[in-house]
Design a protein around this nucleic acid. Sequence first.
DNA 1: GTGAAAGCGCTAACAT
DNA 2: ATGTTAGCGCTTTCAC
Lengths: 344, 344
Amino acid sequence: MRREVTLRDVAELAGVSSRTVSNVVNGYANVTERTRERVQRAVDELGYRPNVLARNLAQGRSGQIAVVVPYLDTPYFSELLQSVIRAARARGYNVLIDQTDGDPEHERAFIAHGSRRLLFDGVIFSPLGLDQQALADRDPALPLVVLGERTSDGGFDHVGIDDVTASRQATDHLLDLGRQRIAAIGDQPYATGEAAQRRTRGFRLAHQARGLVPREDLIISTPRFNRPDGAQAMAHLLDLAEPPDAVFCYSDLVALGAIRTIVSRGLRVPEDVAVIGYDDIEDGAYSNPTVTTISPDKEMIATTAVDRLLLRIASDTPPPGLEMRAPHKLIIRESTAGRTTATA
Amino acid sequence: MRREVTLRDVAELAGVSSRTVSNVVNGYANVTERTRERVQRAVDELGYRPNVLARNLAQGRSGQIAVVVPYLDTPYFSELLQSVIRAARARGYNVLIDQTDGDPEHERAFIAHGSRRLLFDGVIFSPLGLDQQALADRDPALPLVVLGERTSDGGFDHVGIDDVTASRQATDHLLDLGRQRIAAIGDQPYATGEAAQRRTRGFRLAHQARGLVPREDLIISTPRFNRPDGAQAMAHLLDLAEPPDAVFCYSDLVALGAIRTIVSRGLRVPEDVAVIGYDDIEDGAYSNPTVTTISPDKEMIATTAVDRLLLRIASDTPPPGLEMRAPHKLIIRESTAGRTTATA
DNA sequence: GTGAAAGCGCTAACAT
DNA sequence: ATGTTAGCGCTTTCAC
């Protein structure tokens, strides 16, 4: 690679010190209009580009934040990522994206202080489940914002929607339709399944508020929240002696998988089984039938997370960990309301 | 942030020079087992972590490659990205992901030599369409591998599948089913739509080989390859006096949008209209109906692209630009074959 | 407002 | 096999 034009080259040509060039390049105040112009001309003439690597080293920061998600090809995450990238870029930060494949070991490595530590100034972390070991091992100096999962650890921030309330609303919607046997797909009754458990809690609360008790055999757990899981769980439910007439799925993918199974058995959605999802991914707006869902405000989640992380990065004394709630809403579509009019 | 442990600290504690520590840390040869051990102990004791930023500067490389895609939330790209990340990581590289939002200006900025240039050692670039201006402005010193689009410029490599043949196979499949009026959705009859045009060419070739001529009013162009585009184009087709009985869609998303429109009009897939897509995204395997599609070998595309890029990065004299073809296959599902048996 | 010079922490050419 | 040392290109404290 040919030698790059350096700050010093520019300084020499402009007849000033490198300090002054640095000032001009970074838009600092104390420069006369005349020198600024002279320097600028030299910059243009030489085609000077600041060396980010050198700047990073000198400043001890990288200008990058990492966003860690379990799976990149899960629509919810890729849609969220889009918003995060936009927000970060608008604030002058690059985004380094990584997926953990849901591997707890990998998740741990990311927030522990490893060799890659200096590649990013902070991390927005969307864990599959919050592994306590990972939290214990984490580098306390690493600015961190966690998405989705909640926690009591005060060392970082958390951004998410109110899962319990949202799940309760979803269940209420099914109950309002007069459904009698409502199933839930996606529970995760183990340590790292906190988010799932909050949804189950909302599911139960909705029943209790009406003096009902959900049938335990209708609450199905799944390892992940994807289509195959949904398809399989639904198959199991339909094989029951008294199959459900409605299903609350903990993600839209699960809902799509479930719908697939229902339809392939020759049953109809929502006539035979009403289905509601969670996440509001684009797929659900174009599927047959379209999927009723809980829609978290992803844009808000993203900007909140980025802003909070940058604040944390900028602070000398780390601010206390904060719980932040983004809004959500219920979007009613065909999988519960049925087909309405023919659309264009 | 507290002061980091440096190489020199380790050297001091171990009673050796920093050079030796560097050798140990990087696993170089010339170190006695005894010194290696002593150094290692010092490293462990101090909890030393090499500073990536400093290493990058000293080596003049970043250990990162950038992958640039138009849209992150398009399943085809996010599925492809997964494979790229895996491949790059296995070879010791980080992946910096960026999306251009399909903005040609943005695409240009990425391969032109900008200030971010040194953040990555090379770029895997998946343009929406290959803008000639962007190519002209590109930094000739930047190792570059382009996905999807083809080109005559010899300065970089290209990896993709044989679009013409694949499209011809897709069309053949519809013709084999005895369909008479086959439409195509996704043509892009302008400079940056080369990939789309290759598909149209395959579409025409399949007809010609049987002495047929496709109806021109059944070839619909769309600005993008997403669901809304597919839905809208299909609506237009169904409004024709003689609507098609089969559609070749240039992406699975387009196919899903088209199917959505067909079904919402009360028509059946594939009985009234058979639909075939392109890309083999997961959605298409779980939709109702499931979508017949052209499946490019994404894993192969990803590893080929990464390997080739790393080779290019490592070379002093850049190798000549290469055209590389990844395999593809036709996957037949319900949208053309109809529903078979009830699935679990 | 501008200059001189000391790092940032590492790598690698050169010397021993 | 190991030590010495000069960069990598920038930022920034300290003088003037």
